[in-house]
Design a protein around this nucleic acid. Structure first.
Length: 799
RNA sequence: GCGGGCAUGGCGGAACUGGCAGACGCGACGGAUUUAGGAUCCGUUGGGCAACCGUGCAGGUUCAAGUCCUGUUGCCCGCACCA
């Protein structure tokens, strides 16, 4: 039976809202469940079916938990600062505030149309002054704690967007916003010292329930390595060059050094370098390459030897040449390496190309062919000779370096400090004042929020300076410390700031005195279950874990880790199997689906289309299948009769169990399939009881809440079905009295027999042998072995 | 190169801890209804006339392998000259 989904859905959405039934309760005696989904960036394009899938997972789980009696917090908000809005504002000459409000309204209406059970009373908007006050407050706390610093370094810079990008935002050498090539530029930028939390972020992973690949990606991204620092004395000047290595054990095999083209030692000793012109030419060539090109050239090593300065190998006192080459990066370690061509593939390649000595110090390989990176006995290594384990050799070499005062154990991370500013308007102003006398001074806490001033022109200034720099009334201020004339910082925070703590605000969203009250945080935190996209694993997830851990360290939050459990949904691909994109024209608009089939169908389909965690292509015909299913459900009340049907009883217990368990494991596709199967069984039987109908619509309610509420009302149900208790099952009743078991001979299926469910092994085997199909196959053979797997299979091995 | 994962009908995908491979849905085919189309309902649907054969490929363990082991091929994702 077709049902009037448009009318039904609107009706129930209005009633839910009126009754406020999805508001998290203030009753803290109840067991809590905090389900978090990644709040959307309210783009002008509106919502995407991907958003629907991303939210539908925890939507179903939240609805089930509510029916199970939990106090559920399932909030939503908007991560609304950012470049796309600002770019659109510039293009249309509209204030970003207006653009943002419009987009938020659009997203809100779309989300409500799908019937998500969000607690709309707790919505946050990161661009709201009452919200970003606390974003700035956290920044100030970090500033006080020495985690904020300013440095002039080579940074990732997007020439198109005219902004500095963090490492996380320029993955693969492309700007995360516009996908143009990122270039390296020397700039004075703000940093958050996330590297100070590298170990804590690594250790925290042991305490949380994240998928293995998510943990691996974060571990990889943090990239901790243990090794040693060592100073190599230079000839021709009174200085040492510090290197980092993970293989101090191979130091006797060092036959040259390599430094990054940008290494400052070159500038410092220009006049002592006899081939400075050649070096400059090479350095200029490197500077022109994008980061991407530089890392692409993994095969062919280039470089230039520095003439006039050499180094001394501290292990054996031998003089060794120094090269500059772009295979050494200024951004990792010290920008200088000791090269051991016999035992490092890159050094080997470089030595071969430049004809440098290759000295074997570990036995086990054939260094005439390739570098040997394995373990073995130490040779040609003075006091290390004869040692057979890497660990021991490393320890001895580090002891040697420490004793001589020229090195020590060291740890390095691939993760870099977080470049934390954008030269744009639509972001949180950085609450810092530059005073000629006092230096950098934090804006006093009582003056927060430091509000964005009104401007007329949002375009970045010459050379990428912030639009705020053009507003004298904003820039000129007095120093909070000495009262003298000072200038405000005009950069704003990056997009990721607001999302680094939003889950805390949800617990107490309107609190004017704190980011959230202690009571609210104690009760709700940590987030019990956080679902989102894989694309955020090495950005938002790392950043927010860092902020949260910092807040824990200053006593502002009660738990070390913000998210107890994390899962990720798979992408919805276009009908053609490609990733959905505007340019390919394969984007499916959720509105269109709701218009034609209704929200319940959309909800069921995005969860039924495949494994929740995997990518799956959109298929319009399959959507129709879900529509058919719900239309058939709409007819179920017509089949209600007073008579009990024992055949359906087992089917119901089985299904209650299956659906209950599958939802908790995010196996939504099989949960829905089980309901479809049950519906088919009911149709075969021709009738069901009213109690069975109630159970059915309860199980389906989290997936298709509108239709099931309507049925509930029509059959005289009181109150909201969404708040009715979740059905229970009786384990003993999940198995039929008579079961079908398979009979195999020699492991091959030969037939099936129908037996009582509690049949003994002997009886089962006897029944199998007596089966008219099986008996002739065993005639004249001797039985070698008989196996009975209870309730499943009889296998007779005969010769 | 490192790390994570995947491979099952025409398609999306099921399959507990090794126990009847292909649940459920789509599509297709046949039928009913209909002036027709659509929608709906009923039936069939891995291949093969059959014995049998079938989960990327080649082996192995086992009474029994999609599932475990060894090797191999292809694909996807993340990181990547990280010293």
């Amino acid at each position: 039976m077709k049902y009037d989904f448009a009318a039904i859905e609107k009706k129930w959405q209005d009633r839910w809202e009126e009754a406020g039934i999805f508001r998290a309760s203030e009753d803290r005696s109840k067991k809590k469940f905090y389900a978090l989904v990644e709040f959307p960036y309210p783009s002008g394009a509106g919502m995407h079916v991907g958003h629907i899938k991303a939210y539908s997972g925890l939507e179903v789980i939240s609805r089930k938990r509510r029916m199970q009696g939990y106090n559920v917090l399932f909030p939503i908000g908007f991560d609304a600062f950012g470049l796309p809005t600002e770019n659109y504002a510039v293009k249309t000459n509209t204030h970003p505030r207006i653009v943002t409000d419009k987009n938020i309204r659009k997203f809100t209406s779309q989300l409500k149309r799908v019937g998500f059970s969000f607690d709309w009373s707790r919505t946050v908007d990161t661009t709201d002054e009452d919200y970003y006050k606390w974003t700035q407050w956290i920044f100030r706390k970090m500033f006080d704690a020495g985690l904020v610093f300013r440095a002039t370094t080579l940074v990732n810079y997007c020439p198109h967007c005219q902004v500095v990008l963090s490492n996380e935002d320029s993955q693969g050498g492309k700007c995360d916003i516009c996908h143009s090539e990122v270039i390296q530029k020397s700039k004075d930028v703000w940093y958050l010292r996330i590297t100070a939390y590298a170990d804590k972020l690594l250790e925290g992973l042991a305490k949380v329930d994240y998928p293995a690949n998510v943990k691996a990606m974060q571990e990889n991204w943090i990239g901790r390595s243990e090794g040693a620092f060592a100073d190599f004395r230079l000839t021709g000047c009174d200085e040492s060059l510090r290197i980092y290595t993970t293989r101090p054990d191979t130091m006797f095999g060092v036959t040259f050094m390599v430094i990054a083209p940008e290494h400052p030692v070159i500038e410092k000793y220009r006049d002592r370098i006899s081939n400075i012109d050649a070096l400059d030419a090479y350095r200029e060539e490197c500077a022109k390459k994008t980061e991407f090109e530089r890392t692409q050239l993994t095969k062919d090593k280039t470089g230039v030897r520095i003439e006039g300065i050499a180094a001394i190998n501290p292990a054996n006192g031998k003089e060794i040449p120094i090269y500059i080459s772009d295979y050494v990066m200024m951004g990792y370690g010290t920008g200088a390496i000791m090269a051991v061509p016999a035992h490092d593939e890159r050094d080997y390649e470089f030595a071969k190309k430049f004809g440098i000595d290759i000295v074997e110090v570990i036995k086990g390989g054939d260094i005439s062919k390739e570098a040997y990176t394995g373990d073995g006995e130490m040779i040609n290594s003075g006091f290390l000779n004869g040692i057979e384990t890497k660990k021991e050799a490393i320890a001895k070499m580090i002891a040697f370096l420490s004793e001589k005062g020229i090195g020590e154990k060291g740890v390095q991370y691939k993760m870099k400090d977080w470049a934390f500013n954008r030269q744009r308007y639509w972001g949180e102003p950085i609450p810092i004042v530059h005073c000629p006398k006092c230096g950098m001074v934090g804006v006093p806490y009582e003056e927060l929020p430091l509000k964005l001033p009104p401007v007329e022109n949002f375009e970045p200034g010459e050379g990428g300076e912030s639009p705020l720099a053009k507003i004298d009334s904003f820039v000129n201020c007095s120093c909070p410390k000495c009262g003298g004339p000072a200038k405000r910082e005009t950069d704003t925070m990056p997009q990721w700031a607001g999302s680094s703590w939003y889950f805390l605000r949800y617990t107490d969203p309107h609190n004017p005195d704190a980011l959230a009250s202690k009571e609210a945080l104690d009760y709700w935190m940590p987030v019990d279950w956080y679902n989102g996209g894989m694309e955020h694993v090495t950005r938002h997830m790392i950043y927010s874990r860092f902020w949260h851990r910092f807040l824990y360290d200053i006593g502002a939050v009660p738990c070390e880790e913000p998210y107890a459990k994390r899962t990720a949904q798979g992408l919805i691909l276009g009908p053609d199997g490609d990733k959905m994109s505007k340019s390919k024209g394969n984007v499916v608009d959720p509105n269109d689906v709701v218009d034609v089939y209704g929200a319940d169908v959309l909800r069921v389909y995005v969860l039924f289309m495949g494994d929740y965690g995997s990518a799956a292509p959109w298929n319009d015909s399959s959507v129709k299948g879900c529509k058919r299913f719900l239309d058939r459900v709409a007819s179920l009340p017509e089949m209600v009769s007073g008579k009990e049907n024992p055949k359906l009883e087992t089917a119901f217990h089985k299904t209650v169990k299956k659906v209950s368990e599958d939802i908790d494991e995010m196996k939504f596709n099989t949960a829905i399939a089980a309901l479809m199967t049950l519906l088919n069984d009911i149709a075969d039987q021709g009738s069901l009881t009213k109690d069975q109908l109630v159970d059915f619509i309860k199980l389906l309610n989290p997936f298709a809440p509108h239709l099931t509420e309507e049925i509930w009302e029509n059959i005289g149900g009181r109150g909201f079905l969404s708040l009715a208790p979740w059905p229970e099952w009786d384990e003993a009743k999940t198995v039929d009295d008579e079961i079908e078991i398979a009979v195999q001979i020699g492991g091959k299926l030969k037939g099936t027999i129908l037996v009582p469910k509690d049949i003994s092994k002997d009886d089962a085997i006897a029944a199998a042998k007596a089966d008219p199909k099986i008996a002739p196959l065993l005639a004249g053979k001797s039985i070698v072995k008989e196996i009975y797997v209870p309730g499943r299979i009889v296998n007779i091995v005969a010769k």
